[in-house]
Design a protein around this nucleic acid. Structure first.
Lengths: 226, 226
DNA sequence: TCCCCCTTCGATACAGCGTATTGACGGATA
DNA sequence: TATCCGTCAATACGCTGTATCGAAGGGGGA
């Protein structure tokens, strides 16, 4: 076929110029779909139709990419409402919702100091909403709530993953780990555990989260002069 | 040199037969010294003077090794004292001490459901020490304290690592991140944050931990009929 | 007692990772 | 126009977890 007849190749769309923002957004999309382990510099680069080393113009290290991903999510988290208790409750729930949107957050959150602009802005918004609280206790208070949230969402996501890995169904967890626990309890070495798991009311994740947060906020309230 | 004169090679000590216990202990030693990233199946195997694939007779996957490491540490964590408050306080502090002994714990803890024998035994001991507490609330209470501890130690270790990475010295953190924060605050976008960091009393990690734990336990105490 | 088969085990191999190196290319300068 | 220099990304390296498969060893049958 002669050149004249042969169509020109479809113009490769000029790859949109790279930017940290595009790189981070792509990485987050990959992580949302397939988890953190699907985020490799090669895969991110491939999704951007670019060689792996191109990314090193924008980030120095993979860790920096993870930092940027984490900070990007902090942009979604802001307190709402009036008064310290409502501010802390809302920011705790917003954080938990963000983790539900981005499960990989559970792997990163709390894992490194958050000094990115969005994390700082979140901190600023929280502190600003805590007016009236003694300047000397406000930091430990916020820190304690953050710690509670971090620990809770980690456990929650860990459990969710285990359930998912054991067969997708909602209560099929019992079918997977149940027998193991049955056998384990049958040894008679865990009587207290057995009693609680058999007899106690089982709260779902939402209720557990709110109950624990309520305990913490109650304790904080009792410790504040107000 | 003739055979007769040449000494026999020192008997390679028959490599002690492998066992999960030996493998896990070796992995923990590696992690204690050089962090979790120093734990690779090859390095563990090399430390045991064994080929990498030998390990697959004892574990099916690297994740299983991490599970075993985590569970091994749970053996060190037990409650002490009488009454629910003392039990919870002691187990929280024991957990924190364990993380100080094994910094890599901060990366794993809370990251997967803990169903190993030592984790279960710890749970059993905690529940057994909580006698008198309503069976329906005892689980959420323990879960909340666990979550607080997990979140706190993660943040604490993250901060410690950042300090260490920025030059070993105790307050050189200020020299590393200080200027960045100075510049950031200079933008005037974080007035509340700036005020708190400048003016508030700064508690050390021990005090922060105990204060937050106190809040939580106070709230729990208020919620229990006792 | 000898031989063969079957099982067990670990060396080799593979695909993927993060990133250091380096060679080629393009633009600015002489 | 010729040369140098700085920039950028393709190649390459060392490492990872683990699948594969050939060899070696032990047990059973003739």
């Amino acid at each position: 076929m002669l050149v004249w007849e042969r169509p020109e190749p479809p113009d490769r769309p000029v790859p949109a110029p790279l930017s940290r923002e595009r790189i981070v957004r792509t990485a987050i999309e990959l992580a949302d779909v397939n988890g953190l382990e699907a985020v490799s510099l090669r895969k991110v680069a491939a999704a951007l139709d670019v060689g792996p080393m191109r990314l090193y113009g924008y980030i120095a290290t993979k860790e920096e990419l993870l930092d940027l991903m984490l900070d990007a999510v902090y942009a979604e988290i802001r307190p709402a409402g009036a008064g310290w208790r409502e501010a802390l409750t809302s920011v705790a729930e917003a954080t938990r919702r963000a983790v539900h949107r981005h499960e990989w957050l559970a792997d990163l959150i709390g894992g490194r100091p958050q000094l990115g602009p969005n994390a700082l802005a979140r901190g600023e918004a929280v502190l600003a909403a805590m007016d009236g609280v003694d300047v000397d206790v406000v930091m430990p208070v916020v820190t304690a709530v953050d710690a509670y949230v971090i620990g809770t969402v980690r456990r929650e996501i860990a459990e969710r993953r285990a359930e998912r890995a054991s067969g997708m169904n909602q209560r099929q967890w019992q079918a997977a780990y149940g027998p193991y626990l049955e056998r384990t309890f049958a040894t008679g070495r865990y009587p207290a555990l057995e009693t609680v798991i058999r007899d106690a009311a089982h709260l779902d994740a939402d209720e557990t989260f709110r109950l624990g947060l309520g305990f913490l906020l109650d304790g904080i309230g009792a410790g504040l002069p107000t």
